[in-house]
Write a protein that binds this DNA or RNA. Structure first.
Lengths: 103, 103
DNA sequence: TATTATATATAAGATATCCTATATATTTAT
DNA sequence: ATAAATATATAGGATATCTTATATATAATA
């Protein structure tokens, strides 16, 4: 039996949501599908909606209800935040991609 | 008062440790300093050592004691794991750096 | 109208990553 | 030898991100 785990890759969900919304306003399930394209796994509703609520509570995104869907986009604070966090992300992890072939 | 928080940027510590060790064997405090160069803040001992223990328990890294320091390097499993996780990382976040000026 | 599918939401639990604080062992300096 | 600095380690707590399971509201379909 193999009880050895691989390396944890959790994290940066809110950052990825913020980044995706900076490209195009989207609703929750649509965001989950965009994340699936990248990570290979679609976040569960119980992962994505609490994250959207947290970002919304912190006024980094705002939602506009349209029937059963809520379309989110960045607030002014969100625009500033995605600039700051993208810089931090590039400083922290940029070199890892720099050496990768498919860049 | 402003109770609004920014976007959380926690995560991928074990991945970053594994990546750094794939470049050069290092001991704990040395790793913390390398992470500080990138993230701007040096992880506390209580952050870095449990992470090293976890990676070690999962046989992704191995430590060699030399006096008071323990020099860590990747195991064979660790080498395979850093390849896999780097691919995942690039698929998940590569585009964010691709558009950044300083690449 | 009734059923099914879609989108959103919440509850309860696990774990990694952060914190402050404290402890121990080893090395270096006085 | 004693003190100070360095490196490692653990305890206890907070939060984001993940899980499975359940619930509710709206839209589309039979």
């Amino acid at each position: 039996m193999n009880n050895k785990k691989g390396c944890n890759m959790k994290g940066l969900l809110s950052f990825q949501i913020l980044w995706l919304l900076s490209k195009k306003p989207m609703y929750g399930d649509q965001l989950a599908e965009e994340i699936e394209k990248r990570r290979g796994e679609k976040p569960k509703p119980s992962t994505i909606y609490p994250a959207l609520k947290e970002l919304s509570d912190n006024e980094l995104i705002k939602g506009k209800k349209d029937g059963k869907i809520i379309v989110y986009s960045l607030t002014k604070r969100g625009v500033i935040e995605i600039q700051k966090t993208t810089e931090y992300f590039c400083r922290s992890f940029g070199e890892i991609l720099k050496e990768s072939k498919n860049m």
